[in-house]
Simulated assay, not measured.
Amino acid sequence: MSNTLELFNLQDKIALVTGATRGIGLACAELLASQGATVIISSRKQESCEQVAAQLQASGLKAVPMACHLGELDQIEALYRQIEERFGRLDVLVNNGATNPHFGPIYDTDVAAFQKTVDVNIRGYFFMSSLGSKLMAKNGGGSIINVASVNGVIPGLYQGIYSITKAAVISMTKAFAKECAPMKVRVNALLPGATDTKFASALVHNDAIRSALLQHVPMNRVAQPSEMAGTVLYLASNASSYTTGACINVDGGYLTV
């Protein structure tokens, strides 16, 4: 039993979770911290990061707030300088922060919404992974987990540009996995289905849309954020030591229909 538990032990590991102040990111941060990791709580607003870090600390967990806007390259670079100066290492990166400013017909997407979605969901993930993999390699390797979406496989209705960026994240995951393997950096992706978060509220809290969506979900329900965190823990830990380039669907069976 102890050997099984040891597979998921993250004691002395440094983990960075973006978009960590709510939803899937918060659930992941809580679970990684519960397994012994020091979790860097990152999101756009420092105040929100501090609030979540304080909550985890009050529960006896190790958490550090570090704000970063994923759409701003200078902030990404500053975040990594801060991590290296404070910890000297990074073992786990969970690329979870994302944006979806346009919900409507794809042909009505304006330039501002297009650019913001691409900047955060593609460029942000890319440079977080680029800098993260190099820092991990300095200390013997690590694990990058990209939170993509089932929309990257089957585009969501009225979520065109968001779906396009998530398809790019899936491809990005495989490209980084292939090239980072010699550095002992594993790169995998989580593909969540419909999950009850503020981010997905336009879908899951609209009765008509939710009902139509669940017709394609064999488990016939929406997921809770905590149901995504277990896969992230697996990918962050030694339990997945021979897993890289994998894109794991956690979707209630949506992609099997």
Rank of each mutant, 00 (worst) to 15 (best):
N139V: 05
R210W: 15
L7F: 10
I83P: 10
I14H: 02
L190P: 06
A112P: 10
Q46P: 15
L157F: 05
P192R: 11
A78G: 12
L56N: 07
Y254M: 05
V232S: 00
K198P: 09
A29S: 10
L31F: 05
F87D: 10
L79S: 06
R221G: 11
T173Q: 13
N100L: 09
L233G: 00
I154W: 15
G156F: 05
Y242H: 08
V217T: 01
A177N: 14
G140S: 07
L190A: 11
S59W: 14
Y80E: 06
G19R: 07
T38I: 10
E179T: 07
G104V: 00
G141N: 10
N220I: 15
A236E: 02
D110Y: 04
V94E: 12
R186W: 07
Q224W: 15
D119K: 14
T243Q: 14
A29V: 02
R210I: 15
M183K: 04
S34L: 05
E227F: 08
V232W: 07
D91R: 04
G253T: 02
A137Y: 02
Y80W: 06
Y80P: 02
N151R: 08
L190Y: 03
K198R: 15
G124N: 05
C247M: 15
T244E: 14
C180W: 00
S149A: 12
V147W: 02
P218F: 08
K178L: 14
Q75Y: 03
I248N: 01
F8K: 05
H205L: 15
M228D: 01
A137W: 08
E6R: 11
V147H: 07
T18H: 03
C247I: 12
I170H: 10
N121F: 10
I248F: 01
R22S: 04
T197N: 07
T173L: 14
D196S: 12
L7G: 07
G245T: 14
S201Q: 11
V118H: 11
F199T: 00
K166E: 05
G71R: 09
R123M: 13
Q11M: 13
T165K: 07
M1D: 01
L56D: 04
V120M: 12
I164P: 01
P155K: 04
L190W: 00
K116C: 09
M219L: 12
V17I: 03
A194M: 04
A113L: 02
T195W: 01
A112I: 10
C180P: 05
F114V: 10
N139E: 03
I122N: 08
R221T: 11
N121L: 05
L135R: 00
A63W: 02
T165A: 06
S133N: 06
I170C: 11
G60Y: 14
K174V: 12
V153D: 14
A223I: 00
L10W: 00
K166Q: 00
G124K: 02
P65N: 05
I248S: 06
K166D: 08
I40E: 02
A189D: 15
G252S: 05
P225Q: 13
E50G: 10
G156Q: 08
K178N: 13
F126D: 06
I14L: 01
L214P: 05
G142D: 13
V147K: 07
G36R: 02
